[in-house]
Each structure stands twice: as structure tokens, then as C-alpha cells.
């Protein structure tokens, strides 16, 4: 009797399904742990904590504001951490460039990519990396934004005793905006970094390429082409500018009681639907190209 025939027991369908899910979970957990414990990973996390600390120290000034002003300021400060371009924006890039850049690159550098593919399907591998990238991106400033929001409304006093439906509704709107824009920004960054990570064996290269791509596309399309031609759709070719257009139109940022921050004007309101479409397209295209790249690497 042949060796194979005597031992071969095909996995039952449900066990195959379980293996698919289990391996995806194992891989995702491993990647998150590995990325966070990396040598340089502490830097953006420390910066994020520092930002939160600074924001919280200025919280008492907000808490004594009248209700309407408090709500406006709450939206401003919570969304401040998600600003795509200025200020905290660069910290989000840094965070993603440092923490997420090794997600695929280290597997290629360490030759473990093919090893994994003999233990799981390419789809499992890919999905694990996408989920890990999303979670890791969220663990930076987006998490700080939510933390700030929750701490602020808790310190202000929950509008439950007595019920203040108007305030609850306003909080809900801000929270919904934060959730939607977080999904938006996290989806784009976590997809683009995966693409760069799949094209190099060194995570530092992927990180640098990611930042260069964001800045260069912004300078070329928004800074040079748009400024010289005045043709607005050029701006959409920069993912950062597209996100910025959505950001300035999405959040209310006109009324700043403290007077410390300039009011941001709504950028190209007519382009918002296109900007949303372009960001989604960038993210989906990045994911598609990453998957294609992985398929190619498997043959290598």
C-alpha cells in the first residue's frame, strides 16, 4: 500500500473552513504583536500618547464652555487628530511608515513568505495582512481621537441624568463623523503601505517610499499642476489632498472658542464626492495590486 493512500484523510469541509479562519486569526495576532514590539515602533506610539496628554491638559478649559461651544470644540479637537495633512497628519504617516511597513517586507526578507503559503492559502495570508494593517493604523492617532472624545464627554458629564436628547444627538453625530472618517483614513493608509511593503524586502524602504509617495503626489498634483493650471481635478490625484478635501468639508471647523487655532476653510466643496471616490479607488487599487504582487511573488 502506498504511504500516501494509507494515511491520507481529507480534511472535512468544516475543518478546512476552521483552518482558514484560525490561521487568519493566528497570523493577524502575530503580525500585530510583532509590529508593535518592533525596535522603532515605540516612537510613534509615544508621540501619540504625548498628543493625547497635551490635549487632555487643555481639556479643563473646554469643560467650562457653554453647551454649544463645548460641542463645537469637541468636534474640532477630536477631529484634529485625524487631520490628513497639517499637524498630526505627519504623525499618522510616521506611525504607518514605521509600524506597518514590515507587514509583508519582513516575510520577503526572511524568506518566510513561501513557508506560510504551504500552510495556508494566499487569500488567508492576504486577509491577515490587511486586517493587521487596519488594526495597526487605528492604534495610532485615530485611537487617540476616540480616547479624547470619550474622556471629554465623560468629564463634561454624561447627558443621561436628566436625558438631554439634543446633546446626545450632537454627540452621536460627532461620533459618527469620527467613525466614518477614521474608516476612510485607516482604509487608505493601511492599503497603500501594504502595497509598498510587498515591493521590498526591507521595511525601512517601504516606509520611506510610503512617505515619499504621499508627499510627492501632493507636491506634484496639488502644489505644481493645480497651482499652475488652476484645474481642480488635478488635486484629486493626490491621496492626501483628496482626504484633506473630504476632511475640511466633513467636520465643522469654523467656530473655535479658544482662538488658538485658525479656522479651516472648506476646500473645493464641489469635489467632495469625487475625492471620496478617489480615496476609495486608491485604497482598492492598492489592495488589488498588493494581491497581484503576492501572486507574482509566489511564483518567484
Amino acid at each position: 500500500m502506498s504511504v500516501y493512500e494509507s494515511r491520507y484523510r481529507p480534511l472535512r469541509e468544516e475543518k478546512v473552513e476552521r483552518a482558514f479562519m484560525d490561521n487568519a486569526k493566528i497570523m493577524t495576532r502575530f503580525e500585530i504583536g510583532k509590529s508593535i514590539s518592533g525596535k522603532w515602533s515605540k516612537i510613534p506610539l509615544i508621540f501619540a500618547a504625548f498628543f493625547l496628554f497635551i490635549a487632555l491638559t487643555s481639556l479643563p478649559a473646554l469643560l467650562i464652555l457653554p453647551e454649544d461651544d463645548f460641542v463645537t470644540n469637541l468636534e474640532f479637537f477630536s477631529s484634529f487628530f485625524l487631520t490628513p495633512r497639517e499637524g498630526p497628519g505627519s504623525l499618522i504617516w510616521l506611525h504607518v511608515a514605521i509600524i506597518n511597513s514590515g507587514l509583508i517586507a519582513t516575510d520577503l526578507g526572511d524568506n518566510t513568505f513561501n513557508l506560510y503559503l504551504t500552510k495556508m492559502k494566499l487569500k488567508t495570508y492576504f486577509i491577515s495582512k490587511v486586517i493587521a494593517s487596519i488594526v495597526l493604523t487605528f492604534l495610532g492617532l485615530p485611537l487617540v481621537a476616540f480616547a479624547y472624545f470619550i474622556v471629554a464627554i465623560y468629564k463634561r458629564g454624561l447627558p443621561i441624568f436628566p436625558f438631554n436628547w439634543n446633546l446626545i444627538g450632537q454627540y452621536f453625530v460627532i461620533l459618527s463623523k469620527l467613525v466614518l472618517f477614521t474608516i476612510f483614513i485607516v482604509f487608505l493608509y493601511s492599503s497603500v503601505i501594504l502595497l509598498f511593503s510587498a515591493y521590498t524586502k526591507k521595511s525601512i524602504n517601504a516606509g520611506v517610499l510610503f512617505i515619499v509617495y504621499l508627499i510627492a503626489s501632493s507636491v506634484i498634483f496639488d502644489g505644481i499642476l493645480y497651482d499652475t493650471t488652476g484645474f481642480e481635478p488635478f488635486r484629486l490625484l493626490s491621496p492626501l489632498t483628496s482626504m484633506y478635501i473630504v476632511f475640511t468639508n466633513f467636520f465643522t471647523r469654523e467656530v473655535i472658542s479658544t482662538g488658538q487655532f485658525p479656522t479651516l476653510e472648506k476646500e473645493s466643496p464641489d469635489l467632495v464626492p469625487y475625492a471620496v471616490g478617489m480615496v476609495i479607488l486608491y485604497a482598492l487599487l492598492s489592495l488589488f495590486l498588493t494581491y497581484k504582487r503576492l501572486q507574482f511573488l509566489r511564483r518567484d
Binding site: P10, F20, D110, N111
Partner: peptide
């Protein structure tokens, strides 16, 4: 996957 769970593979590269 049934087959993959019953094989072992060691690649050429040792890093």
C-alpha cells in the same frame, strides 16, 4: 488544504 495539512516543505533559502 487537506493535502497541504499532510505535507512538509523546507525551502531552499535558509534566512
Amino acid at each position: 488544504l487537506g493535502y497541504l495539512s499532510r505535507i512538509g516543505y523546507a525551502t531552499e533559502k535558509d534566512k
